[in-house]
Design a protein around this nucleic acid. Structure first.
Length: 918
DNA sequence: TGCGTCACG
DNA sequence: GACGTACGTGACGCAG
């Protein structure tokens, strides 16, 4: 036996560091456990993985018991300016104690003193008893204790801190560290120290005078007049600080030294703890390395993991059973519902079946329109009729006493409405719940959510339909047993997810954004999708034909210039032709693939230096884009039944709270060039109607003015002035067309999280000049710099930022060690608060719009949302009245949830087409 | 499937 | 001092 070696773990210090260094993990129950995971991994390492020479024979974890200690009696403001711990760290504190207990290690805390004092006291006794001591911490206060036989160990950096390391860090040996700390003070603990004295000066003074008292006695010998003056003023503060940083090393020991002897932890409680929080890697290690006992304990835990257990799901084929399920749902008051159809296109989807879940593991599937796969008639399948089932479900789905739960409920709502059934409040959508809680931390599809929160991977759609003989099989051909296993499971999963999320909603303070913004938006957007928008097919076909001719002409000319045919649409071939075959003055190569860059900026550069083929490629590109993405694709998207185009608005796709639009995307219809704008003219009103477009004017910049509290910007908006002109005057000293245009670019760059490089590129100037503009801008509008810094700090602290309405936008990369990733996240959060708040506002406007139109007796329908614009189809005689309602709703959409110090401006236009409405 | 490109806010 | 850089989307064609 060698010398006994005591390890004292500074638990509280470790948790804070682990919290900030590790990603925000959550366990299967949804509890945040990032710091707990780091702490557990650290204990594991200490107990199992240190080599024999440095392994502990004795071990204790020391924690801070409460906030009030004897130091508060000495100095009321001690640790007073410390912010409260982040909200997702709070629930982790009790889990830390669970972790220590799981390892069967003593956990020591004592009211009235800090962990540091307990550590100092144990260290003293242990050293006297002939132990070696290691303190697991990187806290600078504890560096005072280093002496022969005692070192600090920073497990995260895997670094030991001995006497030499202390001297290197502080410039003085450990026994003098307390003196240096007293002079320099500590903002985190609110130890005053001496103003203006940092680590350098403090060390110099202590080297010269020995200790704080020596400095005080020798004040007259100090030559620097300013330092001398502040020292003379701060004598009392220096003495107080010296006492505050002095560790108390005579705290009575709660446990005698030999009670801290380390034994291999019994595997059963450890396995239970690791299993409960989903620390699978460590559980697997325990199984591998913990011998027979470890393997047994691990197996036992894995066997009782919250498994996704359920009896066989029921296929409902009789009226009696259907009514039994409906009665059950009514009795419970909650039902998860999922519809199965034969198409992903909700406007064409035929209802094939409905599944219900009323309790975990308790779910059924009601087929209504399955066809047997071998071509036999529908009557061959044993199922209830569509209308019978729908009529039975109708009152349930409209029942105000039954909470309807769905995953992406908008889809079910649209399908049901197409079959004449309304799904009415109260309802919840697990996708939207996940979005409110976890936007920016992964996606919100059911399979992903189930794996993440339930530890269960549902049967995949592909697997079910893949089992059917025909290659193009849809769900109606899936045999009932397989269909039931799949469909009922989805309802079951949805119901279980709902339980997990509902519980987190209040705790994580996102109830308002969910209940006041995203959830009420769901039926509104469903109506917009069903409404669709009329598109002039002939006009699009005409454009396609015209583009076709131009494309062919350009293709010929480009091939001729290139000296032979090639695929112009292939960036790879185009780059080789331009820069290798034609030997044009070459520019950038992509950093990733090493391919020649052939994007607009590059081709424009060539075109400007008179190279005609570059201009032709640009034109070819533009026309090809317009034809393939718009004029051709949109024609194919016209629904034959309604003769309109029905987009899909994704409610949970972006990290900022915006909607997105797909199949087709109607949020990126061209407008910036005249050629593209023709496509917008093909979006037309139904007979007897006009289209109305209502845009928020500069909403994001207005929000910057409010959030960053910039008086000058706010004044301009209040007076209806020109913000870009203001910026031009402040930054360039004069307002003309050129400076105003550049000021506009600068203003935009603020919204995006400015960088000198980015601005330089946009303005076509060098970086230094761009940096000067930015400096000038910040000095004129200091609120903006503060806003950006505060936003980034908040994000680093919490892992997310919030909009004015309380929407959380997570940015896990904000603490990345990779600088590029981190800076990217910093710009993203600066933008997210603004973009997200604007998204909240227009969403509130959309929620308020249908009742406001109805109250005015108006027949207008809301068709589209394009981030800061709403498009309506308005009966011809109602333009004026509708304009007033629309403007009123949009300009007041933030109220009463949020008050703004700038007005919101809305511009409204009407016309026979979308192009004419602008 | 990933990449480059480009349409929008 | 080097490093890569505006923020948020979706759709298309090409090439592996």
């Amino acid at each position: 036996m060698g010398k006994p070696h005591l390890y004292l773990v500074d638990g509280s210090g470790f948790i804070f560091r682990a919290y900030h260094r590790l990603p925000p993990l959550t366990d299967p129950q949804g509890t945040p456990v990032g710091a707990v995971y780091g702490f557990t991994a650290m204990l594991w390492k200490l107990v199992n993985e240190l080599n024999a020479a440095e392994a502990p024979s004795h071990l204790a974890v020391v924690l801070d018991a409460g906030s009030h200690t004897f130091r508060n009696d000495m100095y009321a403001d001690y640790k007073a300016n410390r912010p409260p711990p982040p909200e997702d760290l709070l629930p982790q504190f009790p889990l830390i104690r669970d972790a220590v207990r799981a390892f069967s290690i003593p956990c020591i805390e004592e009211a009235g003193v800090e962990a540091d004092d307990i550590i100092a006291s144990y260290a003293k006794v242990a050293l006297a008893a002939g132990y070696d001591v290691t303190i697991v911490s990187s806290d600078k206060d504890l560096m005072q204790l280093v002496e022969p036989g005692l070192d600090l160990y920073d497990t995260m950096a895997n670094k030991r801190i001995d006497r030499e390391a202390v001297i290197e860090k502080f410039g003085v040996p450990p026994e003098k560290v307390g003196e240096v700390l007293a002079l320099m003070g500590d903002t985190a603990d609110n130890i005053p120290g001496v103003r203006g004295v940092g680590p350098k000066t403090a060390a110099e003074l202590i080297v010269q005078f020995g200790d704080v008292e020596g400095v005080i006695a020798g004040i007259e010998a100090i030559r620097k007049p300013k330092l001398k003056a502040t020292l003379a003023e701060s004598i009392n503060m220096a003495r107080l600080s010296r006492e505050l940083v002095r560790l108390k090393d005579d705290v009575p020991l709660a446990e005698p030294l030999d009670a801290l002897g380390l034994r291999p932890p019994p595997p059963a409680p450890l396995a239970a703890f690791l299993g409960k929080h989903g620390f699978k890697a460590m559980l697997a290690k325990l199984s591998r390395e913990g011998g027979d006992e470890g393997r047994a304990a691990t197996a036992a835990v894995q066997a009782e993991q919250p498994k996704f257990v359920h009896a066989d799901y029921e296929t409902v084929t009789t009226a009696e059973r259907l009514h039994a399920w409906i009665m059950d749902a009514r009795a419970v008051g909650v039902v998860a519902i999922d519809t199965e159809t034969d198409s992903v296109d909700q406007m064409r989807a035929r209802l094939v079946g409905v599944s219900l879940a009323t309790a975990p593991g308790c779910a059924c599937y009601i087929p209504v329109d399955h066809r047997s796969g071998d071509g036999l008639l529908a009557e061959k399948v044993d199922q209830l009729g569509l209308s019978e089932v729908l009529e039975a479900l109708r009152p349930l789905l409209a029942d105000p006493a039954v909470l309807k739960v769905g995953q992406n409920l908008k889809y079910d709502m649209v399908v049901l409405r197409q079959h004449g059934i309304e799904l009415l409040a109260p309802f919840d959508d697990t996708m939207l719940l996940s979005y409110a809680l976890d936007a920016g931390r992964g996606h919100h599809g059911m399979d992903e959510l189930s794996a993440k929160h339930l530890g269960h991977t549902p049967i995949s759609f592909k697997m079910v339909t893949g089992g059917v003989a025909s290659a193009k099989a849809d769900f109606s051909q899936v045999p009932l047993r397989a269909a039931t296993d799949y469909a009922a499971e989805d309802a079951d999963v949805t119901l279980r997810l709902h339980t997990v999320f509902k519980d987190r909603l209040w705790r994580e303070q996102v109830t308002r954004i969910y209940e006041q913004v995203d959830r009420p938006l769901l039926p509104v957007v469903a109506s917009m999708e069903i409404a669709g928008i009329r598109v002039d097919r002939a006009a699009l076909a005409g454009l396609s034909a015209a583009y076709e001719i131009e494309i062919a002409r350009l293709e010929g000319e480009i091939h001729e210039a290139a000296g032979g045919p090639f695929t112009i649409g292939s960036p790879k071939q185009l780059g080789e032709v331009l820069f290798e075959r034609m030997k044009l003055p070459s520019g950038r190569k992509s950093s990733k693939t090493g391919a020649w860059a052939t994007d607009v900026t590059e081709l424009e550069r060539l075109a400007e230096s008179g190279i005609e083929v570059a201009a032709k490629v640009l034109e070819w590109r533009q026309l090809s884009k317009l034809k393939s993405t718009y004029t051709d694709a949109l024609q194919a998207q016209i629904n034959p039944k309604t003769d309109r185009v029905h987009t899909n608005f994704a409610l949970a796709a972006t990290t900022t709270g915006r909607l997105s639009s797909n199949d087709p995307n109607l949020q990126n219809i061209p407008i910036r060039t005249e050629l593209g704008r023709r496509i917008r003219h093909a979006f037309v009103a139904a007979p007897g109607h006009v289209l109305m477009a209502a845009d928020y004017n500069q909403i994001e910049l207005r929000l910057v003015a409010h959030v960053a509290d910039v008086p000058e910007l706010k004044a301009v908006y209040a007076e209806g002035g020109d913000v870009h002109a203001l910026t031009a005057r402040e930054v360039f000293g004069e307002v003309n067309r050129d400076t105003r245009a550049r000021a506009k670019t600068i203003n935009f760059s603020i919204i995006y999280g400015i960088s000198a490089f980015g601005l330089a590129q946009r303005l076509g100037i060098d970086r230094g000049e761009a940096a000067r503009y930015i400096d000038l801008y910040f000095s004129r509008f200091p609120g903006i710099r503060n806003y950006m810094a505060e936003t980034i700090n908040a994000a680093k602290d919490k892992g997310f930022v919030t909009t004015l309405f309380g929407r959380k936008c997570h940015a896990p990369l904000i603490t990345s060690r990779n600088q590029g990733e981190r800076q990217f996240a910093e710009r993203a959060v600066v933008n997210a608060r603004i973009q997200g708040t604007a998204a909240d506002i227009i969403k509130r406007a959309m929620v308020a719009m249908p009742p406001a139109l109805a109250a005015g007796g108006l027949g207008a329908r809301m068709l589209l949302q394009v981030h800061d614009e709403l498009v309506f189809e308005v009966p011809e005689g109602e333009v004026e009245a509708t304009t007033a309602v629309v403007r009123g709703v949009m300009e007041n959409a933030h109220r009463p949830l949020v008050e703004l110090s700038v007005p919101l401006g809305v511009e409204v236009g009407t016309g026979i087409s979308w192009g004419d409405a602008h």
